[in-house]
């Protein structure tokens, strides 16, 4: 697994996106500071609410653009035949890539979360400290961690099945972004459980990556997300067997 983690770490794009996300957070924190200089509580709430918008978007971009690419890169470069005839080029490599991706997702959440903490601390108005909102911040970070890992797994299975990175970005990215847009839609005002839009709002990992538990029909989502991941995993296994890659 170490070699797969090293491959991720060697990707310049990963570090570029991470750095851009943190710089963007720096800008936002600066404007928050200017706006709410005399309302430190609001400033702190915004800092603790990092995962709600900028954080969750940054993480999703990292996952979709960089982390899942490993599942289609062999086919794109034509190296798949060589890889699949190597002793550990099938099942073990597949599991190692999944493992390495999960590690990198956790690492990304940690870096973004920590980065937000540090940036918010240095930009904060005098006498205000993030520790005042530490508990909710840690809670939302942990939820993001769970959602991020789940989103990575689901997206990587999709990428593995379609064996096409842009297609996987569309399939996973579109519903993910749609969930944000639902909040600005008319239909959101009287959303009923099990409506299509309700499903798209809560069922695409976005809420979890935004650091929020889903409070509407939670039992259903406790079943839905594991089933979604297991279902996609099974599909990926099926396709790999069909392609003789397992």
């Amino acid at each position: 697994m170490t070699s797969e983690i090293k491959r991720y770490a060697a990707k310049a794009l990963y570090w570029m996106i991470l750095a851009t996300a943190l710089v963007a957070r720096g800008f936002l924190a600066y404007f928050d500071f200017k706006e709410f200089k005399y309302e430190p509580d609001v400033y702190l709430d915004l800092a603790a609410d990092y995962w709600n918008k900028a954080g969750s978007l940054s993480l999703a971009i990292l996952i979709l653009i960089v982390l899942i690419h490993q599942f289609s890169i062999d086919k794109e470069t034509g190296a798949d035949t060589v890889i699949h005839t190597a002793r550990y080029g099938r099942r073990r490599l597949y599991l190692e890539r999944l493992g390495a991706g999960v590690v990198m997702t956790v690492f990304s959440v940690a870096i973004l979360g920590l980065g937000n903490y540090v940036i918010s601390y240095f930009m904060s108005p005098v006498g205000v400290h993030m520790r005042n909102v530490l508990a909710p911040y840690i809670e939302s970070t942990l939820i993001t961690l769970v959602g991020g890992v789940g989103f990575f797994l689901a997206a990587s299975f999709v990428c593995d099945v379609v064996a096409n990175h842009p297609a996987a970005i569309c399939i996973c990215g579109f519903p993910y972004v749609f969930s944000y847009l639902v909040y600005s839609m008319e239909v959101n005002k009287n959303l009923k459980p099990f409506d299509l839009v309700w499903f798209l709002k809560y069922g695409t990992f976005t809420e979890l990556v935004r650091g929020r538990w889903i409070t509407t029909v939670p039992v259903f989502w406790c079943i839905w997300y594991p089933m979604l991941i297991i279902g996609l995993f099974a599909l990926s296994i099926y396709k790999r067997k069909e392609r003789k890659q397992l």
Binding site: N164, P166, A167, I169, C170, I171, F178
Partner: peptide, 15 residues
């Protein structure tokens, strides 16, 4: 022949 095009069409129609 681009696979992502068809995915985009399907999602676009859904949208």
């Amino acid at each position: 022949s681009f696979r992502e095009t068809w995915v985009a069409y399907a999602l676009g129609i859904g949208y």
